[in-house]
Write a protein that binds this DNA or RNA. Structure first.
Length: 380
RNA sequence: GGACAGGUGGGUGAGUGGUUAAAGCCAACAGACUGUAAAUCUGUCCCUCCUUGCGAGGUACGAAGGUUCGAAUCCUUCCCUGUCCA
């Protein structure tokens, strides 16, 4: 292993029976063991969780932040002046920034897509901003993230083949533009950041296949599969992943964006996915939905009123080591802010631990059995 | 003892003759949440019954009586609460 600061992927093990892989993703801010779940910290914070806990208690190696949100507030230039995102938010480990492509989907009422880019009306003050493949690279370079994402067009489900094709074409074109621009800027700034293209194509195999093939030519250090979890039935997301992942370069990490019920994590990994992120553990935590080894605990339910047990008896997170369901329910019912922190800590731990188990199984060569037992339990 | 003000469903609080089983908010109960416009959103929230329907009955706006086709809303008496004056 060299001293290159550039992001690169080291494949460690592959499951002989499934597409699962274990590897190491090297970044300028540490090594990320894959497969990995990346907590989402849109506004330079994983809502409710101090960086110290993220690092020391959860041992998260990489988190997400969002280009669109940080561009609007506090502004990427401000962050650059304050030493970049890592220093600004006091997070020493790796950061992946999403490009704002997802906001093309989630803020669909506030934007207009053209070949040039996306015209957004800020959800904060209504101001207009144009995001282009180049400008989003610049913003992300200013932020100083380790992995930048290409601007893409993420469609809602369902989409017609024609609309999906058009969005996919545009996404490929943007990826090419962004990549050329990135390579130039990379040289100028000697930034170690990587830029990942994103496969689109809605729920159409032919479009996904074509998109993956074209993007592969960019020879990027990693690839993402986007456009999932946009309203489609659950099995479709997996199906699209299954159709796409094997087409991406074997020696590069594959990142499926924005997915994952806890039980699905292993399914994605089984399809050759190395990186995942999802808002679910953090958002659901804040809303009182806790993931455990025995399913969901909706903490506000009256049945937990006087329950002295921890959220999950099999969990070793700070919350489970320390507090009862009764206390957590009380915090939730009372609207106490501590609840968010404790609940998010737990849910993230649950996700990260699952991924560590998965990784462990792959390295041991027992992933197939691990997956089978998960599926059996799901049926029960 | 007197003068005002007021008593509405678990709590607040609208409603001053009919589409009012009674707004809104809160609480309670339940559900959702997938590259975060989310510490958010949705539903239920008097009782009983069934052919579970914008269904049928029954209770209900301090109490009792009255006016009226019809009363939470108008009248009478009583009870209670608050403020002020003695």
């Amino acid at each position: 292993m060299g001293y290159s600061e550039n992001v690169h992927f080291e494949l460690q093990a592959e499951c002989p029976d499934t597409g699962a892989r274990a590897g190491l993703l090297h970044t300028a801010h540490g090594v990320v063991e894959t497969p990995v779940f990346m907590p989402v910290g849109t506004q330079a914070t994983v809502k409710g969780v101090p960086q110290r806990d993220l690092e020391c208690d959860l041992d998260a190696r990489i988190i997400l932040a969002n280009t669109y949100h940080l561009f609007l507030r506090p502004g990427h230039e401000l962050i650059r002046h304050l030493g970049g995102l890592h220093q600004f938010m006091a997070w020493p480990r790796a950061i992946l920034t999403d490009s704002g492509g997802f906001q093309v989907f989630s803020l669909s009422d506030l934007r207009k897509v053209t070949d040039e880019g996306v015209l957004f009306r800020s959800h904060l003050d209504g101001d207009q901003h144009l995001f282009t493949p180049e400008s989003t690279v610049d913003v992300q370079l200013a932020l100083g993230s380790d992995i930048m994402m290409v601007l893409d067009e993420c469609l809602a489900y369902p989409a017609s083949h024609e609309a999906a094709n058009q969005a996919m074409r545009r996404t490929v074109a943007w990826a090419n533009t962004a990549y050329r621009y990135y390579l130039r800027r990379k040289e100028e700034t000697s930034s170690p950041a990587a830029l990942f293209p994103i496969v689109q194509g809605s729920m159409f195999h032919d479009l996904r296949t074509a998109c993956a093939a074209e993007l592969s030519e960019l020879n990027a250090p990693g690839y993402a599969i986007g456009g999932l979890s946009v309203g489609e039935p659950r099995p479709l997301s997996l199906e699209m992943t299954e159709a796409t992942a094997p087409l991406l370069p074997r020696d590069r990490p594959r990142y499926v964006m924005g997915v994952g019920m806890p039980e699905e994590l292993a399914e994605y990994v089984a399809r050759g996915v190395d990186m995942l992120d999802c808002v679910l553990p953090s958002r659901n935590a804040r809303n009182g939905c806790l993931f455990t080894s025995e399913g969901r605990v909706i903490i506000k339910q009256a049945r937990y009123r006087d329950d002295p047990a921890p959220i999950d008896p099999n969990c070793h997170c700070y919350t489970c080591r320390t507090y009862s369901r009764a206390y957590l329910r009380h915090l939730f019912q009372a609207g106490e802010i501590l609840f968010s922190t404790l609940a998010t800590l737990h849910n993230l731990k649950h996700y990260l631990d699952r991924m560590r188990q998965i990784r462990h199984a792959i390295l041991l060569g027992t992933f197939r059995a691990y997956l089978d037992s998960l599926r059996r339990r799901a049926v029960e």
